[in-house]
Amino acid sequence: MHRTYKDLPSEPVAMQSTEDIITGTWRSIRPVVNEDKCIRCYMCWKYCPDMSIIVEKEGDYPTVDLDHCKGCGICSNECPRGAIKMQREVL
């Protein structure tokens, strides 16, 4: 992390991961996976623009990385079995 002038690289090169940027705060609706309906086709994983559908290994049910999920709802729309519902975030 560059906090002072002295820490700046000599030219503007960036190499620090974006993972600590919590884009989950953008979200107004969140995906909820119903494992009873899920057939583990991983369409949701495939189409997630934010890489926020996590499947640890083949055969696992998908989980949602809520730190980064922006709540676009693509996973819900693409799920062939309607296993992902978008739920309103409650403050």
Binding site: P9, S10, E11, P12, V13, A14, M15
Partner: peptide, 14 residues
């Protein structure tokens, strides 16, 4: 000091 490098990927001038 900061060449384009596959081993040490970075963004130049973002």
């Amino acid at each position: 000091e900061h060449p384009v490098s596959i081993e040490r990927p970075m963004r130049h001038g973002g």
